[in-house]
Amino acid sequence: MFLISIYVIFIHILMKFYIPPQIPRLAFAFGIFITLFLVLRHFLIPDTFGKYGHYRAASLIDNAKPELHYAGQLACFTCHQDIEEKKSQDVHSEIHCETCHGPGLKHVVSGKKEDIFKPSGREFCGKCHSFNAAKMKSAVFQIDLAKHNIGKNCIECHNPHQPWQMKK
């Protein structure tokens, strides 16, 4: 109401002056354009935009939607309590199951052996345990794979869940 009265007064004052014919025509053309733009914008702008900041708030929900692939080791322990106990007593206690076994959620759901990875081979253990000048000795025990029991699979002697419990 206030704005309209200001507008009316403004036009009345303008009427006192000579206005060249170009101006009202141009004002009209621009007015149509701007109105069209504002109308379009109203319909195009996403609903939740601006709620928390300059973004579509519904995107927070979108980002929470993706499927999980890793279950977390607590999920493993619900079935594999024996391994949980063994692991907690040896040097691999701090290592989570899925570090070696890969994404485990599929297996937690289905229970099938095929749905989880069972690592094997010297190169696999070597990713952590091979010598590298960049690995601190305090962080990981390192071994020279070129010399130590060549040709044998590591888990032939070492139980991966209890590495210092040697298999006979």
């Binding site: 060249p20 014919p21 170009q22 101006i23 025509r25 141009l26 053309a29």
Partner: peptide, 18 residues
């Protein structure tokens, strides 16, 4: 021309001014 067909000297002067 947007329908503004006035070519009197006064209007033309406004063309130049604007």
């Amino acid at each position: 021309t947007l329908g503004v067909s006035d070519i009197s000297p006064r209007t033309l002067a406004w063309d130049r001014k604007l």
